[in-house]
Design a protein around this nucleic acid. Structure first.
Length: 889
DNA sequence: CGATTATGCAA
DNA sequence: TATTGCATAATCG
């Protein structure tokens, strides 16, 4: 059991050694890296040599220590470290944090004291302990169980000199404890410890070997030889004791020795990899993969790769896998064309079917169709929605797909940027493979898979399915452990099919109408443009904030309301404040609005209208948002204008196909209703259940007026407060929003919380929960890590708190509508209706409904949305029919 | 030519 | 100095 071995590292000292031991290296960004590289190399070497299982690293703080209080000249003659080294200190700490290695920095103490204390506690707990430092002062910490390791460089390789207590005695003739007295007598010029004048190393050793301590020597002061030493000690006894105190490493600082937090675990993770990559530690990156996991020298899974490139091989392969129970596959595409399929069905091997002249992609898909359609074969994939598009193209009805590692990884942690297979490999298998970009390059230099050496291409692709196969179990287990089984299997997985359907059906756009709209805008824009030039007295690019800024704030000398980091702000709110200053402002605002509509919504949409079907097929992304919402791209159909009349017009171009109509339903204030449910606030719940106007209610409370007397301005201000609460509002922002003072805004907020006390308690709880656990949860256990809460930066922390308040609300709303989407989609199909769900806009669903099915669809849609979850307030849904999206109001 | 900045649209 | 997104145009390097 006691195989545990604790390694304690003197961070500053090892950094120092590393810095002077290597030439001043830097990466291509010009960041100095030599000390960091040296440190990491020494660290890894020692961990390996010592078989360390636990590790901690201590650093000095800049702040003065207790030694300075005793003796203000302590380390007085010490020069600070060179800048080139100082700059590397934060980097090494980042590296250590990435490696999950504890860093100790204790105010008032030096790293030595921290190490002394930890070593002492570690030893008392019965662990073998090694202290790694370049500083021989630490030898005083050596015992029978505590080893002091001092690195030395020999023939370019790092080894260590190791000292237990008896090794210290053997070398110096004094015990580690006596070592302190030795130093008290002889002093230490590097730390500016005075010692006793006239007593040097030789005399000190002689005295301590005879009397074992300064105090004891002083008791026999008259016997001391040589007489000169006796006199010196007599006259400087206090100085000697002071020096001894300074030289004594504290072993009882107030630090907890939490052994478990020191355990070496997952030091070669994604974060470490990314830092090493940034620092360009090429050799370490290579070492990286091979030091962990079941990986071979090539840094990949230790599986045997098979390449299939003939009809004969393919036939045999199909026969072979037709009796398998489970397989992982990955369809490799390039420019939307299938170029191969990777398949793995056991731990040891992986296959890649490479498309070619002999094996045309349509042939491969045709042959492999039987496998995909076999209900008895469980399939694991990565990015199912993309597969569904391919299956649809080749008329394959894929059966028994049980897992998508892409969506699975997102479900576990929705805050990552990407969930590509190389990311999955790093995160779940601790394997480093090239990303597609690393393999093929990017931009102009990007090459095709087909330009890769034959074997590299096949092996790389083959490894993709192998990674999916191997990571499936880990991801699946983790989903279970995090209590997200239901979320994943009942919501996220089924949702993939719903989103695919929405993408597949698309939405019809009347391109003639769109063209007319664009022209109409274009004419007004031209007019405005010449008016603006007229008013400005010159022509310039109105769309350029830089040029516009010069015109407004230099030529026309309008007051500068706000600045951006690069110049004057010309944002809408700034223009709004300037509108009475000059007639040009309103023209510019209008110009802005219309050009936005024309470029983004009118002309921008044209490119996406299908030539064959006149429909726009947006892509709905399931793995982007940190709260669980869906996002829409190419084009984004979730931000089509509605607030301003002129913008809203654009919705007239979205039309149903012949014999169909649009049915649109949106949740009424779903986030506030969820807040009512989650906070269990009785006032709020009761208000909703009595169908009260919540904004009016809030207004009557906040402004202290009878419900009936609330003005529309007061109501809309209260609405802003209600909104703000959901976002974790601050008084400042509310004051900006409502154009009131901060004090007034704060009063609104205070009164709000007084009216709805449980909401206050709930939101505070959200923060407390997230701070304790490191993440927030939604109603359906969707989880979002919030590392910002641990930031040392106040702004970041405040941001984290707002996230902690908002995520459970926004995320729960996302959960609810996802359930509704799945249910309504299934309902339409099970009832054999022709109507289809085609859009989701966060709290709104749009259905293209057959005219014969209108009433039924309305009924089902409202039912499924209102009953998606059972909570303590009713979820109300507004439903509308229309012949264009514009009309569904 | 790709990346960044400012701006503005939605829930 | 309010949450979550995506697209456009200008400009930088």
């Amino acid at each position: 059991m006691s195989k545990d071995k604790v390694l304690l590292v003197d961070g500053n000292s090892i950094m120092n050694r590393a810095y002077y031991g290597l030439p001043l290296l830097s990466n291509s960004e010009g960041i100095y890296t030599n000390a960091v590289l040296g440190f990491v190399n020494i660290l890894l070497k020692v961990i390996k040599d010592e078989n360390a299982t636990h590790i901690g690293v201590a650093f000095d703080l800049k702040a003065p220590t207790f030694r300075h209080e005793k003796y203000k000249e302590y380390k007085g003659n010490r020069k600070g470290m060179p800048d080139e080294l100082g700059m590397q200190m934060p980097i090494i700490k980042d590296v250590l944090r990435a490696m999950n290695i504890n860093i100790y920095e204790v105010e008032g103490y030096e790293a030595d004291d921290v190490l002394g204390t930890l070593a002492h506690k570690s030893e008392k707990s019965g662990f073998e302990t090694t202290v790694l430092s370049g500083d021989r002062d630490l030898l005083q910490l050596a015992t029978k169980k505590v080893k002091i390791s001092i690195p030395k460089t020999k023939n370019k390789t790092t080894t260590t000199e190791n000292y237990f207590d008896e090794d210290v005695i053997a070398l110096y003739g004094v015990t580690p404890t006596e070592f302190i007295d030795l130093k008290g007598l002889m002093g230490d010029s590097s730390d500016n410890i005075p010692g006793v004048p006239g007593i040097g190393e030789k005399t000190a050793i002689k005295i301590i070997t005879n009397y074992h301590s300064i105090e004891e020597a002083y008791n026999h002061i008259d016997e001391l030889k040589p007489p000169r030493a006796s006199k010196n000690l007599k006259e400087n006894y206090e100085l000697a004791i002071l020096s001894k105190g300074l030289a004594t490493i504290c072993v009882d600082c107030d630090i907890d020795f939490e052994k478990d937090s020191l355990r070496i675990d997952n030091i070669f993770n994604e974060e470490t990899y990314n830092i090493f990559k940034k620092l360009e530690f090429k050799r370490l990156l290579e070492k990286f993969g091979s030091s962990i996991g079941n990986i071979d020298e090539n840094n990949s899974l230790s599986v045997i790769h098979h390449s299939i490139s003939t009809k004969d091989e393919l036939d045999k392969f199909i026969v072979k896998i037709s009796n398998e129970k489970t397989l992982a596959y990955y369809i490799v595409t390039e420019n939307h064309k299938v170029i191969g399929i990777s398949i793995t069905y056991n731990e040891q091997e992986s296959y890649f079917i490479k498309c070619s002249d002999e094996l045309h992609s349509s042939y491969v898909l045709e042959i492999i169709q039987s496998i995909f359609e076999d209900k008895n074969i469980k399939k694991i994939t990565h990015g199912l929605k993309d597969d569904l598009h391919i299956f649809s193209e080749y008329n394959i009805k894929c059966e028994n797909i049980c897992f998508d590692t892409f969506v699975g990884a997102y479900t576990i942690n929705p805050t990552k940027d990407t969930y590509d297979i190389d990311d999955i490999a790093k995160e779940y298998l601790q394997i480093i493979i090239k990303s597609e970009e690393e393999l093929l390059g990017k931009g102009r230099n990007k090459i095709s898979y087909l330009e890769l050496p034959e074997e590299e291409f096949a092996n790389y692709c083959s490894s993709l399915a192998a990674i999916i196969y191997h990571s499936y179990e880990k991801i699946d287990n983790m989903i279970d452990e995090l209590n997200m089984h239901q979320l994943f299997y009942d919501i996220e997985m089924p949702l993939i099919y719903v989103l695919f359907d929405m993408e597949f059906y698309g939405i019809k756009v009347d391109s003639v109408l769109l063209h007319e709209y664009s022209d109409k805008l274009g004419k007004i824009i031209d007019l405005l443009e010449s008016e603006i030039y007229e008013l400005a007295g010159e022509e310039f690019n109105i769309k350029s904030p830089k040029q516009l800024g010069v015109i407004l704030f230099e030529k026309l000398e309008l007051p500068i309301i706000k600045k951006t980091k690069t110049g004057y702000s010309t944002a809408a709110e700034v223009l709004d404040k300037l509108k009475s200053e000059h007639p040009i402002i309103n023209k510019i605002s209008e110009y802005r609005q219309l050009t936005k509509l024309k470029s983004t919504y009118a002309d921008g949409l044209f490119d996406y209208i299908g030539k064959d079907d006149s429909r726009i097929h947006s892509t709905f992304k399931q793995t982007i948002t940190s709260t669980g919402r869906i996002s829409s791209i190419e084009p984004n159909l979730q931000n089509i204008p509605i607030r301003m009349d002129i913008g809203r017009e654009i919705r007239k171009v979205f039309v149903p196909r012949e014999d169909y109509v649009f049915i649109d339903a949106d949740y009424s204030q779903i986030e506030l209703r969820l807040l009512a449910h989650l906070s269990e606030d009785e006032t709020l719940i009761e208000a909703y259940n009595n169908h009260q106007d919540i904004h009016r209610l809030t207004a009557s409370q906040v402004f202290h007026i009878p419900f009936e007397e609330v003005t529309s301005l007061q109501r809309s201000n209260a609405k802003a407060v209600n909104f703000g609460i959901v976002y974790g509002i601050g008084a400042f922002s509310l004051s900006q929003d409502l154009h009131i003072t901060r004090k007034e805004a704060q009063e609104y907020i205070d009164k709000y919380f007084k009216k709805y006390p449980s909401v206050k308690i709930y939101l505070d709880n959200c923060i407390r929960f997230a701070k304790n656990r490191g993440y927030s949860l939604t109603m359906l256990n969707r989880r979002r890590p919030i590392p910002e809460l641990n930031s040392n930066n106040f702004m970041q922390r405040a941001f984290g708190e707002r996230i902690a308040m908002n995520t459970p609300i926004q995320g729960s709303a996302a959960d609810v509508i996802k359930i509704a989407m799945i249910n309504i989609s299934n309902k339409l199909k099970s009832e054999n209706l022709r109507s289809r769900l085609i859009l989701q806009i966060h709290d709104e669903l749009l259905i293209e409904a057959h005219r014969d099915e209108v009433e039924l669809v309305k009924k089902y849609l409202v039912e499924e949305m209102e009953n998606a979850v059972d909570i303590s307030v009713k979820l109300e849904v507004d439903v509308n029919m229309g012949m264009t999206w514009y009309d569904t109001k």
